[in-house]
Design a binder for these strands. Structure first.
Lengths: 229, 229
DNA sequence: TCATTTCAGATTGTCAACAATCTTTGTCGA
DNA sequence: TCGACAAAGATTGTTGACAATCTGAAATGA
């Protein structure tokens, strides 16, 4: 055991991300109950702070808060999953459209280098970082499109998407390869708004169509092993 | 004083709405500080619950939470205001587009009767309810479009819009009259997606263009008078 | 007179104990 | 044996008190 662990106080953000990671990486299965005391023991913080983090997770749709019952990892239905993708298409198509007319040279450079990073992680077999970078690509687009609000909304939707993929994505299919992202960047670079919109639409539809409606794997493991510091 | 007041416990939702109303109706000016203890006294609840409500208000962009400083009624800049309208156009144009192909007879009926209500409130001079109904119209569209997620996102944006209007709307100009709403309903009834989208775009742009960039009225009154039960 | 420091007051952040609620288990009777 | 009821245990919801932090004013010295 590490004696240092108790010294540096853990921030709420860190707790949030730790749980987020565990859910997105399929370590905690959908439907799993998250007891407040259990979490407060694991992270060595008071229940009050755990409670606050749980509220934030609930707001972002990763867990469900049932009054007097507690917190459960969300179990998005296939309808909710499709709704998430509908919302994402709505927002992201508009964002790339706008980007085509507003993006500058350094913006294009950031997109390109990001796709490069994705390529590296993908070919290196680092699944976890590949998934994370894939989400970050979409967030980068929102950031560059200079809409703080849509960027914030999209952040939530991407979190939800991670959970959905954890639930419904077929095992063998990895996250969207970086090629489609590259195609999006190309369209933006060419300032072809119509094409960029179409490519983004196709990209999101592609991911949605990979969903497997049958599977319902529930991996229930010991929380302490997964989240332990 | 009413002895009943202390009996029925007040729900968080009620506290939220009370503050929301006060902000949207311009009773609490932007920038006003909201002290936790002050609010907990007013509503006769513990600070912990006030704190939770404040978190929710901050999530919806109505107040700003500064660490170790407290909560202030948000002061959206004109850029943020434009961003809100950009986000609303993005979402609502898509929603009416979808409605044109999915709405049923009873949905159209609900829209029509809602516009009737608006007309009544508008000609009756009930400004507060007119504003509320105007927002509710947009929410109704989201609800009918059967996208839980976009409806939820739009709910937040409408809250923000109320605050923006409270800050920047010119005094004389009332909220958007019901006529434009009626035109939207007509387009949807005709199932003319292209026109519905255009009318919605025009409608939101119209509201945005009514903003007055100069004004910065700060109405600071005693909170207890405004929120008192 | 002005800038800096110090200190008091006020306000938010955190916590641990208590109350309310729900779930489970065990018991009783038909 | 099965269902209903009751008590016990576990878990969440709420509260008040304490600690950490910030603001503003008074005091000090150049």
């Amino acid at each position: 055991m590490d004696a240092e662990a108790a010294k540096r106080p853990v921030t709420d953000q860190e707790i949030y991300e730790k749980i987020w990671d565990a859910i997105a990486e399929r370590q905690i299965g959908p439907g799993t109950r998250l007891k407040e005391e259990q979490l407060s023991d694991i992270f060595s913080v008071s229940r009050a702070r755990v409670r606050q983090v749980l509220q934030n997770l609930a707001r972002d749709g990763l867990i469900t808060l049932v009054p007097n019952r507690g917190a459960f990892v969300a179990k998005p239905s296939i309808e909710e999953a499709r709704d998430v993708f509908f919302a994402r298409r709505t927002i992201e198509e508009r964002l790339v459209e706008r980007l085509c007319s507003t993006i500058g040279a350094e913006g294009i450079e950031r997109l390109r280098s990001h796709v490069d990073d994705e390529r590296r992680a993908h070919s290196g077999g680092e699944v976890a970082t590949a998934i994370r970078l894939s989400g970050a690509f979409h967030l980068l687009i929102a950031e560059l499109a200079q809409s703080q609000i849509l960027a914030g909304l999209l952040r939530d939707l991407i979190s939800r998407t991670s959970l959905i993929m954890a639930m419904y994505q077929q095992k063998e299919v990895l996250s969207c390869g970086p090629d489609e992202h590259a195609a999006i960047v190309d369209s933006i670079t060419a300032r072809d708004a119509k094409k960029a919109l179409a490519v983004m639409h196709h990209h999101l539809a592609h991911i949605e169509n990979q969903l497997d409606l049958e599977s319902e794997r529930v991996v229930a493991r010991d929380l302490e092993d997964i989240l332990g510091l």
